[in-house]
Amino acid sequence: MLRSRPALLDVIASWTDPFLSAPRVADSFPNKWAPEMLNITNLRRTFFAGTADEKVALDGLSLSLGKGEFGVIIGSNGAGKSTLLNAISGALQVDEGTITIADDDVTRMPVHDRARHVARVFQDPMKGTASGMTIAENMLLAELRTSKARLKPGLTRKRLDNYREQLSYLKLGLEDRMDTQVSLLSGGQRQSLSLVMAVIKEPDILLLDEHTAALDPRTANLVLNATLRAVSALKLTTLMVSHNMQHAVDYGNRILMLEAGKVKLDISGAEKEGVSVQSLTNHFAIKSDRMLLGA
């Protein structure tokens, strides 16, 4: 499938443009002919097996995501959302089942090999960056995600110019602080940096793990908008975990509701257009005020 890819610079430039509203990815997707990017079959994972604390986190979960699809995962606490993302990224080994990304069976692949397929932005801004290292060094690490680190000069002038330019479009002034330690940045700045780092080399699949939950509302909005623009412009295959039902209704072209380690509800296409927070909430066994309020 040939699709003209917009230059990353243009994409980032549009992130913070106040006159453009958040794009609705659902307008152009799903594409019926899109090849499968992520395929998960019969995934099982039990914690503390054989003890009194036994907990089935993933209970034969199956899921597939087409290229360019944007799925929003919702579900109450303990439904298996984080376990699923950890299983995809490789941070957690599964007991059973298979995970295929871009036709590559990654089920038993270690995290560092899987990294060439997967980029992830965590809820905790501390997790996605190396805090004792500079902004420039972090950008380099992100650029090396899809390739092997070589015995060649790291921060070349060419690279630095490239990073500076890309960061300048965030309009956070990070481009003038290339030698600043990331630990000195605010949570929002760090999360914005994490996002640029995640998409600088377009991942086959982008995992967003409640990545705006730890930010104040204004910053959360900024980061979320930047995310949506990057995802839509680069047509990234994305899985976003959110506790905010409104997000699930507004963004993405697919809603995946998890419950007890299974996909309980999978809404896409025209059906998703008609979904409201109220209709989603009705699906929850236990109504959660927290989710309704979008906390």
């Binding site: 996605g128 190396a130 290292m133």
Partner: peptide
């Protein structure tokens, strides 16, 4: 100053992140 050296420092700084960025 090489790519590998910088990647090695990331391993000490944030091993999970270094691993997620493809470093062994």
């Amino acid at each position: 100053m090489t790519e590998r050296g910088i990647a090695m420092r990331a391993v000490g700084d944030n091993p999970d992140m270094a691993e997620a960025q493809g470093n062994n």
